[in-house]
Protein backbone atom coordinates (compact mmCIF):
# COMPACT_ATOMS: atom_id res chain seq x y z
CA UNK A 1 0.00 0.00 0.00
CA UNK A 2 1.20 3.52 -0.72
CA UNK A 3 1.65 5.82 2.25
CA UNK A 4 0.47 8.74 0.13
CA UNK A 5 -1.20 8.93 -3.26
CA UNK A 6 -1.67 12.28 -4.94
CA UNK A 7 -3.87 11.92 -8.01
CA UNK A 8 -4.35 14.67 -10.61
CA UNK A 9 -4.46 17.33 -7.93
CA UNK A 10 -5.34 20.84 -9.08
CA UNK A 11 -5.82 23.94 -6.98
CA UNK A 12 -7.01 27.19 -8.44
CA UNK A 13 -7.20 29.96 -5.83
CA UNK A 14 -10.12 32.33 -6.10
CA UNK A 15 -8.92 35.33 -8.10
CA UNK A 16 -5.43 33.91 -7.67
CA UNK A 17 -2.87 31.80 -9.42
CA UNK A 18 -3.10 28.16 -10.42
CA UNK A 19 -1.20 26.78 -7.42
CA UNK A 20 -1.24 23.10 -8.39
CA UNK A 21 -1.64 21.84 -11.91
CA UNK A 22 -2.65 18.19 -12.30
CA UNK A 23 -0.07 16.96 -9.81
CA UNK A 24 0.33 13.19 -9.35
CA UNK A 25 2.84 11.14 -7.41
CA UNK A 26 2.99 8.45 -4.75
CA UNK A 27 5.05 7.77 -1.64
CA UNK A 28 5.98 4.23 -0.67
CA UNK A 29 5.67 3.21 2.93
CA UNK A 30 8.96 3.71 4.76
CA UNK A 31 10.65 6.18 2.44
CA UNK A 32 11.84 9.73 2.91
CA UNK A 33 10.64 11.77 -0.03
CA UNK A 34 11.71 15.31 -0.76
CA UNK A 35 9.48 17.74 -2.61
CA UNK A 36 11.65 20.51 -3.92
CA UNK A 37 10.65 23.78 -5.44
CA UNK A 38 11.34 27.49 -5.25
CA UNK A 39 9.17 29.81 -3.16
CA UNK A 40 5.58 29.87 -4.38
CA UNK A 41 5.89 26.64 -6.35
CA UNK A 42 2.91 25.02 -4.61
CA UNK A 43 4.59 22.97 -1.86
CA UNK A 44 2.65 24.45 1.05
CA UNK A 45 -0.60 24.36 -0.94
CA UNK A 46 -0.09 20.63 -1.37
CA UNK A 47 0.57 20.12 2.36
CA UNK A 48 -2.50 22.22 3.21
CA UNK A 49 -4.67 20.04 0.97
CA UNK A 50 -3.34 16.83 2.55
CA UNK A 51 -4.12 18.20 6.02
CA UNK A 52 -7.56 19.46 4.81
CA UNK A 53 -6.80 23.08 5.66
CA UNK A 54 -7.79 23.97 2.14
CA UNK A 55 -9.80 22.06 -0.43
CA UNK A 56 -8.52 21.00 -3.83
CA UNK A 57 -10.28 22.25 -6.95
CA UNK A 58 -10.07 18.75 -8.41
CA UNK A 59 -8.22 15.49 -7.91
CA UNK A 60 -7.77 13.55 -4.69
CA UNK A 61 -5.31 12.55 -2.01
CA UNK A 62 -5.20 9.20 -0.25
CA UNK A 63 -3.29 8.45 2.95
CA UNK A 64 -2.67 4.72 3.39
CA UNK A 65 -5.47 4.05 0.93
CA UNK A 66 -8.03 6.27 2.63
CA UNK A 67 -9.20 9.43 0.91
CA UNK A 68 -8.53 12.57 2.94
CA UNK A 69 -11.53 14.75 3.76
CA UNK A 70 -12.44 17.09 6.59
CA UNK A 71 -14.75 14.45 7.98
CA UNK A 72 -12.24 11.58 7.67
CA UNK A 73 -10.75 11.30 11.15
CA UNK A 74 -8.85 8.12 10.23
CA UNK A 75 -6.34 9.87 7.96
CA UNK A 76 -5.96 12.62 10.57
CA UNK A 77 -4.80 10.00 13.08
CA UNK A 78 -2.22 8.66 10.62
CA UNK A 79 -0.85 12.08 9.71
CA UNK A 80 1.50 14.38 11.56
CA UNK A 81 2.27 17.80 10.15
CA UNK A 82 4.94 20.36 10.93
CA UNK A 83 3.73 23.63 9.43
CA UNK A 84 6.07 26.16 7.96
CA UNK A 85 4.81 29.08 9.96
CA UNK A 86 5.61 29.30 13.64
CA UNK A 87 2.53 29.03 15.82
CA UNK A 88 2.10 30.58 19.25
CA UNK A 89 -0.14 29.53 22.14
CA UNK A 90 -1.09 32.18 24.60
CA UNK A 91 -1.99 30.56 27.85
CA UNK A 92 -0.27 27.22 28.27
CA UNK A 93 3.13 25.71 28.84
CA UNK A 94 4.96 23.45 26.39
CA UNK A 95 4.10 20.34 28.42
CA UNK A 96 0.43 21.32 28.76
CA UNK A 97 0.06 21.96 25.04
CA UNK A 98 1.48 18.53 24.21
CA UNK A 99 -0.80 16.84 26.73
CA UNK A 100 -3.91 18.59 25.37
CA UNK A 101 -2.92 17.63 21.87
CA UNK A 102 -2.43 13.98 22.88
CA UNK A 103 -5.93 14.06 24.33
CA UNK A 104 -7.37 15.27 21.02
CA UNK A 105 -5.90 12.10 19.49
CA UNK A 106 -7.60 10.07 22.23
CA UNK A 107 -4.41 9.38 24.23
CA UNK A 108 -4.99 10.18 27.88
CA UNK A 109 -1.66 9.29 29.47
CA UNK A 110 1.12 10.19 27.08
CA UNK A 111 3.71 11.75 29.39
CA UNK A 112 6.37 9.13 28.67
CA UNK A 113 6.23 9.69 24.92
CA UNK A 114 6.02 13.46 25.40
CA UNK A 115 9.16 13.36 27.56
CA UNK A 116 10.92 11.28 24.88
CA UNK A 117 10.05 13.93 22.27
CA UNK A 118 11.03 16.80 24.56
CA UNK A 119 14.41 15.17 25.28
CA UNK A 120 15.06 14.56 21.60
CA UNK A 121 14.16 18.11 20.63
CA UNK A 122 16.14 19.61 23.52
CA UNK A 123 13.00 21.14 25.03
CA UNK A 124 12.86 19.11 28.23
CA UNK A 125 14.43 21.90 30.36
CA UNK A 126 11.88 24.33 28.86
CA UNK A 127 8.80 22.15 29.31
CA UNK A 128 7.23 24.42 31.92
CA UNK A 129 7.70 27.63 29.95
CA UNK A 130 4.95 29.32 28.00
CA UNK A 131 5.41 29.41 24.25
CA UNK A 132 5.91 33.18 24.31
CA UNK A 133 9.03 32.61 26.43
CA UNK A 134 10.65 30.33 23.83
CA UNK A 135 13.12 31.40 21.16
CA UNK A 136 12.24 31.04 17.47
CA UNK A 137 14.23 27.83 17.14
CA UNK A 138 12.56 26.34 20.22
CA UNK A 139 9.11 27.20 18.87
CA UNK A 140 9.99 25.34 15.69
CA UNK A 141 11.09 22.32 17.73
CA UNK A 142 7.80 22.48 19.62
CA UNK A 143 5.99 22.27 16.27
CA UNK A 144 7.88 19.04 15.60
CA UNK A 145 6.93 17.62 19.02
CA UNK A 146 3.32 18.59 18.35
CA UNK A 147 3.32 16.69 15.07
CA UNK A 148 4.64 13.56 16.76
CA UNK A 149 2.60 13.18 19.98
CA UNK A 150 0.38 10.52 18.41
CA UNK A 151 3.19 8.59 16.63
CA UNK A 152 1.97 9.31 13.10
CA UNK A 153 2.72 6.89 10.26
CA UNK A 154 3.14 9.67 7.72
CA UNK A 155 4.95 12.84 8.73
CA UNK A 156 4.72 15.99 6.61
CA UNK A 157 7.57 18.39 7.20
CA UNK A 158 7.01 21.77 5.55
CA UNK A 159 10.38 23.53 5.44
CA UNK A 160 11.32 22.36 8.94
CA UNK A 161 14.76 23.93 8.98
CA UNK A 162 13.89 27.39 7.65
CA UNK A 163 15.80 29.85 9.83
CA UNK A 164 17.25 27.17 12.08
CA UNK A 165 20.90 27.10 13.20
CA UNK A 166 23.36 24.46 12.02
CA UNK A 167 23.54 22.54 15.29
CA UNK A 168 19.77 22.12 15.49
CA UNK A 169 19.59 21.31 11.80
CA UNK A 170 21.96 18.37 12.21
CA UNK A 171 20.20 17.02 15.29
CA UNK A 172 16.89 17.38 13.47
CA UNK A 173 18.17 15.39 10.50
CA UNK A 174 19.38 12.64 12.84
CA UNK A 175 15.97 12.55 14.50
CA UNK A 176 14.18 12.39 11.14
CA UNK A 177 16.34 9.38 10.22
CA UNK A 178 15.55 7.73 13.55
CA UNK A 179 11.81 8.25 13.05
CA UNK A 180 12.13 6.80 9.58
CA UNK A 181 13.99 3.73 10.91
CA UNK A 182 11.11 3.23 13.34
CA UNK A 183 8.69 2.99 10.44
CA UNK A 184 7.53 6.56 9.82
CA UNK A 185 7.17 7.60 6.19
CA UNK A 186 8.31 11.17 5.64
CA UNK A 187 7.41 13.85 3.11
CA UNK A 188 9.81 16.75 3.34
CA UNK A 189 9.32 19.98 1.44
CA UNK A 190 12.28 22.24 1.24
CA UNK A 191 14.14 24.67 -0.91
CA UNK A 192 17.25 23.86 1.05
CA UNK A 193 18.85 21.37 -1.32
CA UNK A 194 21.57 20.04 0.93
CA UNK A 195 18.88 18.84 3.28
CA UNK A 196 17.08 16.88 0.59
CA UNK A 197 20.32 15.43 -0.79
CA UNK A 198 21.35 14.27 2.66
CA UNK A 199 17.99 12.78 3.74
CA UNK A 200 15.82 11.79 0.82
CA UNK A 201 15.72 8.49 -1.05
CA UNK A 202 13.66 10.08 -3.79
CA UNK A 203 12.86 13.64 -4.74
CA UNK A 204 10.32 15.42 -6.88
CA UNK A 205 10.96 18.87 -8.30
CA UNK A 206 7.96 21.14 -8.73
CA UNK A 207 7.54 24.63 -10.06
CA UNK A 208 4.37 26.62 -10.80
CA UNK A 209 2.39 23.68 -9.40
CA UNK A 210 3.71 21.18 -11.93
CA UNK A 211 5.93 18.20 -11.27
CA UNK A 212 8.98 18.67 -13.49
CA UNK A 213 11.04 15.65 -12.42
CA UNK A 214 10.60 12.69 -10.10
CA UNK A 215 13.13 10.01 -9.28
CA UNK A 216 15.84 8.63 -7.03
CA UNK A 217 17.97 11.45 -5.65
CA UNK A 218 21.17 9.84 -7.02
CA UNK A 219 19.67 9.37 -10.48
CA UNK A 220 18.51 12.94 -10.72
CA UNK A 221 21.94 14.18 -9.73
CA UNK A 222 23.51 11.88 -12.30
CA UNK A 223 21.16 12.85 -15.08
CA UNK A 224 21.31 16.58 -14.57
CA UNK A 225 24.81 17.37 -13.40
CA UNK A 226 28.37 17.04 -14.61
CA UNK A 227 31.47 16.02 -12.74
CA UNK A 228 34.51 18.23 -12.46
CA UNK A 229 38.02 16.78 -12.49
CA UNK A 230 40.86 18.87 -11.20
CA UNK A 231 44.30 17.71 -12.41
CA UNK A 232 47.51 19.03 -10.96
CA UNK A 233 50.17 18.40 -13.60
CA UNK A 234 53.80 17.63 -12.89
CA UNK A 235 54.89 19.64 -15.86
CA UNK A 236 53.46 22.99 -16.90
CA UNK A 237 54.45 22.37 -20.48
CA UNK A 238 51.82 19.71 -21.01
CA UNK A 239 49.08 21.45 -22.99
CA UNK A 240 45.58 20.22 -22.31
CA UNK A 241 43.62 23.18 -23.60
CA UNK A 242 42.60 21.34 -26.78
CA UNK A 243 40.94 18.57 -24.78
CA UNK A 244 37.17 18.48 -25.42
CA UNK A 245 36.39 18.49 -21.69
CA UNK A 246 38.82 21.29 -20.81
CA UNK A 247 37.26 24.03 -18.71
CA UNK A 248 40.00 26.34 -17.47
CA UNK A 249 43.56 26.46 -16.21
CA UNK A 250 45.13 28.01 -13.14
CA UNK A 251 48.93 27.50 -13.24
CA UNK A 252 49.62 23.77 -13.12
CA UNK A 253 46.00 23.00 -12.23
CA UNK A 254 43.64 22.15 -15.10
CA UNK A 255 39.89 21.86 -14.70
CA UNK A 256 37.72 19.55 -16.79
CA UNK A 257 33.97 19.08 -16.88
CA UNK A 258 32.85 15.60 -17.85
CA UNK A 259 29.48 13.82 -18.01
CA UNK A 260 28.59 12.47 -14.56
CA UNK A 261 28.60 8.86 -15.78
CA UNK A 262 32.23 9.03 -16.98
CA UNK A 263 34.75 7.57 -14.55
CA UNK A 264 38.37 8.63 -14.15
CA UNK A 265 39.76 5.64 -16.10
CA UNK A 266 37.55 6.44 -19.05
CA UNK A 267 38.57 10.06 -18.86
CA UNK A 268 42.30 9.18 -18.92
CA UNK A 269 41.98 6.98 -21.96
CA UNK A 270 39.91 9.67 -23.61
CA UNK A 271 42.38 12.49 -23.08
CA UNK A 272 45.45 10.35 -23.77
CA UNK A 273 47.60 11.71 -21.02
CA UNK A 274 50.50 9.89 -19.50
CA UNK A 275 49.84 9.00 -15.87
CA UNK A 276 53.36 10.17 -14.98
CA UNK A 277 52.40 13.72 -15.93
CA UNK A 278 49.74 13.84 -13.23
CA UNK A 279 50.92 14.92 -9.84
CA UNK A 280 47.53 14.98 -8.08
CA UNK A 281 43.81 14.96 -8.90
CA UNK A 282 40.46 15.73 -7.31
CA UNK A 283 36.92 14.85 -8.31
CA UNK A 284 34.05 17.20 -7.59
CA UNK A 285 30.72 15.37 -7.89
CA UNK A 286 27.62 17.19 -9.06
CA UNK A 287 25.26 18.37 -6.35
CA UNK A 288 21.49 18.17 -6.14
CA UNK A 289 21.51 21.94 -6.19
CA UNK A 290 23.06 21.91 -9.68
CA UNK A 291 20.51 19.34 -10.85
CA UNK A 292 17.68 21.38 -9.34
CA UNK A 293 18.75 24.58 -11.06
CA UNK A 294 19.17 22.72 -14.32
CA UNK A 295 15.69 21.17 -14.09
CA UNK A 296 14.12 24.54 -13.24
CA UNK A 297 16.09 26.17 -16.08
CA UNK A 298 14.89 23.54 -18.57
CA UNK A 299 11.36 23.98 -17.30
CA UNK A 300 11.51 27.72 -17.92
CA UNK A 301 12.71 27.29 -21.48
CA UNK A 302 9.92 24.91 -22.42
Amino acid sequence: MHALEVESLTKQYEKGPLALNNLSFTLDEGEIFGLLGPNGSGKTTLISIITTLIEASSGEVKVFGSKVARSNLLTKRLLGVVPQEIVSHGFFTVNEILNFLSGYYGISNNQEHIDYLLHNMGLYPHRNKKVSQLSGGMKRRLLICKALVHKPKLLLLDEPTAGVDIELRNSLWDFVRELNRNGCTILLTTHYLEEAECLCDRVGIINHGELLRLGKTRDIIKDFTEKEFELELANEKVDMTKNPYFLRKEGVINYFRVPSNMDFGGFLSNVQIDIKDIKDFKVREGKLEDAFLRVLGDGNHE
Binding site: T52, K76, V87, L101, Y104, K146
Partner: peptide
Amino acid sequence: QDLRTVPL
Protein backbone atom coordinates in the same frame (compact mmCIF):
# COMPACT_ATOMS: atom_id res chain seq x y z
CA GLN B 1 -5.49 25.49 12.34
CA ASP B 2 -4.61 22.66 14.75
CA LEU B 3 -8.34 21.98 15.01
CA ARG B 4 -8.34 21.05 11.33
CA THR B 5 -5.46 18.61 11.60
CA VAL B 6 -6.48 16.79 14.79
CA PRO B 7 -9.11 14.03 14.68
CA LEU B 8 -11.88 16.03 16.37
